[in-house]
Design a protein around this nucleic acid. Structure first.
Lengths: 193, 193
DNA sequence: GTCTATAAATGGATAGAC
DNA sequence: GTCTATCCATTTATAGAC
């Protein structure tokens, strides 16, 4: 817990430290229990804080989820940028798959949360997450994906939910399993007739 | 709403009717919002009832989830029984896949709920649902599945979460997409070296 | 079988002391 | 920056009238 390593920046901007601790704890609990089932009380308790202290760092519960999701969203958007700059559709797919695998392995602890429900299910569509969805779908399957292609793509995006069941695998084992499975899922045969 | 069709059984055992309505509504809301985000008030309101009326039919919120899950669990257990009685592993797989596809298509409206969290995350393991998981995994991949096989199997079980995004597909389109995707996922290559 | 009323607890959130 | 204390809404659940 205590980390007055060198600079002794202690005074003011240790705020950043506890802010990050809150984010980490929240991300873990959101993943384990789901967003709605996680209370600010639980988050505060696990850090030895009070709810009020948490509210100093975040204006609302929603903001915690948003902030916790942000780094992942940015990383994936970068990945899509890279893939979008590539020429062949086959190269794009390979880049996306391997980048996504790296992302999943790096965040294998706290990955369930993506499907977690924000407070307003009506707005679930205009989310940055579903913007990601749209972009990736277009990159992989073009503007008019078939039903099978959309299903495959959605299956890719729900794969993170599986990671909790595979905690005993090493990173390398997980990486290979993910890459193989993702590629199989995305190898959608062309429509018949 | 009113259905005093013929027998006029109205009096006593119309309980079964509203009980079923409660189950249907709850299942739908659990699927849309998640278990924790769904309150008994919402369920009651949608049926024009009060919470107290709901509590006449179910002792606790937990029991509603349990009862709503029950028919699906039984149907899948039957499916596993059938597959278990078959000889070739290839025939088993085919039977399981097609049975699972039928199940998914028939319940495509309310399918997200399976991953929904019960109140006690500690007991999430000894659930009947995870018993199903175990049985199916053994039938498909034997007693000592590899990491890739376990991931593929888990991917199959998280596929239901994708159905909400494909409501525009016809049953037939969905059926074909599911069958194709499931078979691809389960075609796990043997481990190298 | 459904209602009103209410209990008891917990949720998110704010004000103000330190 | 964290705490105590509090507000208010909502939750699960029960008691008892109709």
């Amino acid at each position: 817990m205590a980390m007055p390593a060198r600079g002794l920046t202690s005074r003011a901007a240790q705020a950043e430290q506890t802010r990050q601790q809150i984010l980490d704890t929240a991300q873990r609990l959101f993943s384990e229990l789901g967003y709605s089932a996680t209370s600010l009380q639980m988050i505060a308790d696990e850090l030895g804080l009070t709810k009020a202290a948490v509210y100093y760092h975040f204006r609302a519960k929603n903001d915690i989820l948003h902030a916790a999701l942000q780094p992942g969203i940015e990383r994936l958007n970068t990945l899509l940028d890279e893939a979008g700059a590539m020429r062949g559709r086959r190269a794009r797919t390979e880049h996306l798959v391997h980048g996504f695998v790296d992302f999943l392995v790096a965040n294998r602890q706290n990955m369930v949360m993506a499907s977690t429900d924000p407070d307003r299910p009506e707005h679930r569509d205009k989310t940055e997450v579903s913007a990601l969805h749209e972009r990736g779908l277009g990159l992989l399957f073009g503007e008019h994906p078939s039903g099978a292609e959309r299903l495959a793509y959605n299956a890719v995006f729900t794969l993170p939910d599986c990671l909790a069941e595979l905690t005993d695998l090493t990173d390398q084992e997980l990486r290979e399993a993910l890459a193989s499975t993702l590629l199989r899922i995305l190898r959608v045969p062309p429509a018949r007739a």
